[in-house]
Design a protein around this nucleic acid. Sequence first.
DNA 1: TGGCGCACCGTGAACGTTCACGGCCGTCCC
DNA 2: GGGACGGCCGTGAACGTTCACGGTGCGCCA
Lengths: 338, 338
Amino acid sequence: MAKNSGASTIVDVAERAGVSRQTVTRALNDMVDVSAATRARVIAAAMELNYRPNRAAQNMVHGRRRTVGLVLEDLSNPYFAELASALSRAAAERGWSVLLCDIGGDREKGRAQLASIVAGVDALTLTGCNQDTMDLLPEAVLRGGALGLPLLMLDGADHARLNGRIVLDVDSGITAALDHLVATGRRRIAFIDSESGPDDRRKVYRAYLEGHDLVWPAGTPEISAEESIEGGMEAAEQLVLRAPDVDAALVYNDVMAIGVLKAMSRLHRRVPEDVAVVGIDGLQIGRFVTPELTTLSIDKGELADVALDVLDRLLAGNPAAAGEAKVIGLSLVVREST
Amino acid sequence: MAKNSGASTIVDVAERAGVSRQTVTRALNDMVDVSAATRARVIAAAMELNYRPNRAAQNMVHGRRRTVGLVLEDLSNPYFAELASALSRAAAERGWSVLLCDIGGDREKGRAQLASIVAGVDALTLTGCNQDTMDLLPEAVLRGGALGLPLLMLDGADHARLNGRIVLDVDSGITAALDHLVATGRRRIAFIDSESGPDDRRKVYRAYLEGHDLVWPAGTPEISAEESIEGGMEAAEQLVLRAPDVDAALVYNDVMAIGVLKAMSRLHRRVPEDVAVVGIDGLQIGRFVTPELTTLSIDKGELADVALDVLDRLLAGNPAAAGEAKVIGLSLVVREST
DNA sequence: TGGCGCACCGTGAACGTTCACGGCCGTCCC
DNA sequence: GGGACGGCCGTGAACGTTCACGGTGCGCCA
């Protein structure tokens, strides 16, 4: 038996096989300088003790490798999934690892999860996390300071504790989208907002309307809903109810926009004939709904790359990276829904 | 400067601040027994040296924590995303961590990625990986043996090296789906297969047709395509071309089924009036396409739980778990497409 | 028969951190 | 004035593994 309560170590195996640590290492790692008989004895002992090398100890001697945590609320949301995919690939490109943390709906579970994750990472990236989610972070992380592990927001809102932030160029992006809608003859353009996200998108929209003499006579409809397909559906129903003459909708994100598409179909409003729909995010799924969704696309590969660059500089102690907000452009992808 | 080439350590900070290791630990971890002045000096030194505690060393003394790798080909595929979400949550429930590995399309990059991931995990779970993907694993892992790290397939095909496997009960699942189609009056039922996946689903389908006198007069159409929405679209086009009298299609998975839905819409075949469509997987997105997709749903939470159970037993050295194939049931969720 | 080389194996040391303990100095109280 | 105590700090040891080195015994050849 192993003498300590936990798993068995290499010396347990060595003792059982009647050899030294080093011989165990040699036998189990297919190195030279071990006789066949000894190797067999060691392997037998390792199996009997169910020996598993301690990864932490191995990493310790083999030099540090970098691990970055990715915190999100729901990976089954395709936006987060595509972002995670991009981050995983970009991280692999640099030899980093990404630790996944899907905190889900339960706050207390999420808190425990984050506390556990934090012990294993060198930095944390967050996406779609609002103030509530930030509060779930362990107090020691929140406090931050000199030793605090770098926190980077991949999008979404600002927060005092953040060491860096990637913001989307919603300004020119939304302007381009609205230009496009106007160019195709739309005049009653609504904006469907997220009820939890930041309100910068709505602000740009409003400014555009005012700047282009597009303000609704009876007041621009103010619709916002949950950031989900259901939310988009409900918002669309609200919208046509409150503004029957709407002929275009710019939607906070693609997921909600897909809900809008579905609701329009239910309400027998043809897209794009009766009403045009533009989403934001550039999700792949947008190409497969009917009609295919016009969208303001985010290059997630670029976003991931920039994020890792910032983290790299942060971890390297480059103070220039702290607090900086990198800007990512949006590109309008016109498909069938406009 | 740190004397070693890499990052600075706690003793570098200690030397610079003119204190001992332990005092640095105390100062940086908000412990007692440090004077304010000393604490400030230590923090300053840590900042100047950009000190970051070595996670491996910390984990080493604080006892091992379990990390399981999740290997998949493309997280932007919603099936993998939902699986990853479930696994992340189930793992968190047990205090385990999930290391994400989206290997993407590039074989060589994938190989490097896997080699890198393997150094940090205690076990590997795979999903949707065929023989080709398995070959990307490092030779040392493939060889396996006593010390080999446990490999578990979350679904998909068998492989010699696998220590465990979770199989879906396609038998009764597909039977239920076909029963449902027959009960709603369908007689020309096609099956759209994956060109890369295992062929057990098709076999069940064929046996059912033969057992229920549903074999097509001119031969059952054999359609298979890539496991993607595009693949589903192409398959559907093929299908209506080769079998214009088709009135139902059972599709290998939901992602392909969504493609089928889209193609049917393009071909002006109404779903479900002209042709019924049933997918497999139970993806959330199926509720948001039009019409909503009837599907054979997999409980991904259960799948993840079972997977971690198997890994737990495997890591605990329970030989009963090896080679065992746990079975997960499928439940038919009838929505609008049938 | 001495020496050389090879096959096989063992012993510190190191990785970087935390824990348990012990030491020193000043203050306060009896 | 001596003992107790508290604030502050340092020193081994330990976590589990691998690396670099050194050692032993045996065969082979000059």
